[in-house]
Design a protein around this nucleic acid. Structure first.
Lengths: 213, 213
DNA sequence: CAGTGTGAAGTTGTTCACAGCA
DNA sequence: TGCTGTGAACAACTTCACACTG
């Protein structure tokens, strides 16, 4: 692994991290087709991105490619999955069992990528006490009694006007990371990792590009 | 609106576009609290971002702020919604009624942000013929008979290995934009707008930041 | 020579500094 | 003074150019 390719704070650039799961998905397809070796150039061509970028992105991991041959597919997949934290399963609580929250509970993909929702919370008596895909739904007030030691991630799918409030509670309880699906940006202690994922932000970009042609 | 603040290709930078829906959500909350005026500085403080950035981002729209007072909340909301394309409703087809696809069909938020799913497609006889939230689900092969003139957006929630194939079909039918929820990057005619939204990419970033502390 | 790996150049986006204003 | 708006400085990311390797 090169030194120049590491940023001073030792962080992998976010754009690179976001691209890696794409490579991973692509590689898994390639593997299914029986491919043994693959080159940055080929990945780049197939995905329509810059070859050097692929090389640089992959160099953040520990893998090294062979000149003229490229990378071995199977180890590359392994290394990427490890690097992205998809092989270790983290437990999470989900807050807000509305349409989006329900959706995430139904999504089996998450577990495959290292995230296991072990409990959900809401205030609506309509859903509290029920179970979705084996995940029990508790009343938000019952949070206090939960073991926050093993659960480090909170998924926020609450209404916008509750987001900050719920986030505050979670930080108190000692949560380490918040996956925020609401469009508001929440303010928390800077040691807590916040990942904002608002579908509507992406919609906005798409609409704009459509207008701009 | 400044000229220097426009990029040469006249495009609003993507990061700015992604931030705008956050401002919008924040402003709506502020409005609910009865606030009449708001300043970049205040928005920035509340959201924990740089004040100049807020000013720059807002300057991409047509709104002008008043010195010392800031912006009027109500018109600012209006202008932002217009600018982001949330006030005009676009019709969309959804492809792949799996867990994520179902989720999006259940999500009422989308319509509020200018996207209306008018039909869904799948190949699974289990779901074909049914209706979710008033949206009829057709067999994928029935796509040919649909009016692609009014529907310009395709939502891709199919399995990874089908993404490219389905995308190709949609481009043939004349789709203008693809909202791709699969982790693979699809290759299409460059006139088609592709918006990649992979949850797992965000997961990867979150995991990485958690490790790095 | 097709491919990796890397420093340098170029581009895009962010932050700073300050002019102008009420 | 507290705010907008903007050019200039800076940082981050991407692309280019090229040395190196089997």
């Amino acid at each position: 692994m090169s030194l120049t390719n590491r940023k001073k704070n030792n962080q992998v650039p976010e754009p690179a991290l976001r691209r890696m799961p794409c490579y991973l998905a692509y590689l898994k397809l390639a593997q299914k087709e029986g491919l043994k070796h693959i080159s940055s150039t080929l990945i780049a061509r197939d995905m329509g991105v810059d070859p050097t970028q692929v090389t640089k992105d992959l160099s953040y991991t520990s893998i090294v490619g062979k000149t003229r041959v490229g990378y071995e597919v199977v180890p590359l997949i392994q290394v990427l999955e490890d690097f992205l934290g998809f092989t270790v399963v983290d437990e999470a609580y989900l807050f807000g069992v509305g349409s989006l929250g329900k959706a995430l509970l139904h999504d089996h993909g998450l577990k495959q990528f290292g995230l296991k929702v072990v409990a959900a919370f809401d205030v609506d008596p309509e859903v509290v006490g029920k179970t979705i895909e084996g995940v029990p739904i508790y009343h938000f007030e019952e949070l206090a009694t939960m073991r926050a030691e093993t659960v480090k991630i909170g998924i926020l799918t609450v209404p916008v006007d509750k987001a900050q409030e719920v986030a505050n509670r979670l930080v108190e309880v000692g949560i380490k990371a918040l996956w925020n699906f609401t469009p508001v940006r929440i303010k928390v202690d800077e040691r807590v990792v916040v990942q904002n994922t608002s579908l509507y932000a992406h919609l906005a970009v798409m609409f704009n590009r459509m207008k701009a042609d």
